[in-house]
Write a protein that binds this DNA or RNA. Structure first.
Lengths: 190, 190
DNA sequence: CTTAAACTACCGACCGTTCGGTAGGGAGAG
DNA sequence: CTCTCCCTACCGAACGGTCGGTAGTTTAAG
């Protein structure tokens, strides 16, 4: 059993039961180990959560940066960013769910160290939108509110998306992108 | 101490620590009672959560229905619905946070009884958007995806909104409404 | 022989919950 | 007016069980 195996099982258990609702015994059972054996690999339950959050955030940030570096129109970049992020959310559902839903369970010390990374990821989205506004491709009152609406809609999918549902994450991403780019109104705007 | 006092404090504690992270002793302390005394008013910790969720959902559904009944254009109705929902979210932050974030802590039996009410609330939003499409005022590929994007953006505010932040919930609501109605693109759509 | 990784056995603390009991305030009978 | 009875609200103490975490031992591979 490797560190990674434990993390993967822990993410699964945390997603199902929540951090406080899941016990070390639950994690141990999921990874087919005795509870005490977990402490050979990790110092504490908190440490498992912290590493999960770090890894998850690093992953989504990395993938986002990769999209940002592409040579594309801002509109297309936004579309692809949404597609990549939501695809990550479906492929690494356990990991990202923990990132989005359980980071409030971090102890204050770890929590405050986690926040800056989180902000960095959110800023990438703000910057992307801001770039569109600067170019004249986008138009919106508040860039930060637009970014938060966008991220909110996408993040919230962890609460209802099922892999065996009627739509794939790519379809959902395209649907969201159309909505955010064109809006609901049938007539063009002034 | 009334049942309501306990519920209010419980919502506050659940929001801060999560359902599983909060103990009956925490709730008792918040309402200045011994934890044994809580069992005079409620049968179990689960029962407190259940009643909180029921009340919260009933409240937002009621307010939403009130807006739906107004004689307005569909666009204006959507704007007002968003304003009312987000205002509720800021005024009853504890209650709605528990509704949105802790309902997964319900035991399966209660959970399945809760779901239909939840669906009923979400359907109101879908119906509102569908009405706009039928009238020709709105245009979107998938009504249910639009509703979920809308609700996701709004629900996610519980994770970042602070009452002492730079924007009021009304401003945020208007900002979100403009974004969802007009979209990001600067040029009119085809 | 060493060392990493797993085990069994256990700890004190805390969990949700229950129990027996009490303070105080009406309600009804005499 | 008072005595009895009951009721609501609450409390201190304790219950069985589970929690995160530790100590010490065995296993297995290099």
């Amino acid at each position: 059993m490797t560190r990674d195996d434990i993390l993967q099982s822990a993410a699964q258990v945390f997603r199902q039961k929540g951090f406080h609702g899941a016990s070390m015994a639950d994690i141990a059972e999921a990874v087919q180990l005795q509870k005490a054996s977990l402490y050979h690999h990790f110092g504490s339950k908190q440490e498992i959560l912290l590493e999960l959050l770090d890894r998850a955030l690093e992953m989504v940030t990395e993938r986002m940066a990769e999209v940002m570096a592409r040579e594309l129109s801002t509109e297309e970049k936004l579309r692809q960013a949404m597609r990549v992020y939501l695809k990550t959310l479906s492929e690494q559902g356990d990991l990202v769910s923990v990132l989005l839903l359980e980071f409030r369970s971090l102890e204050p010390a770890f929590y405050s160290r986690h926040i800056p990374n989180r902000d960095r990821f959110e800023r990438m989205w703000r910057d992307l939108i801001q770039q569109g506004v600067d170019e004249g491709a986008f138009r919106c009152e508040s860039v930060s509110m637009a970014a938060r609406a966008l991220l909110g809609a996408m993040n919230w999918t962890v609460t209802w998306y099922r892999r065996d549902g009627p739509m794939t994450m790519e379809q959902i991403a395209d649907s969201f992108a159309d909505l955010f780019l064109n809006g609901l109104l049938a007539i063009g705007h002034s």
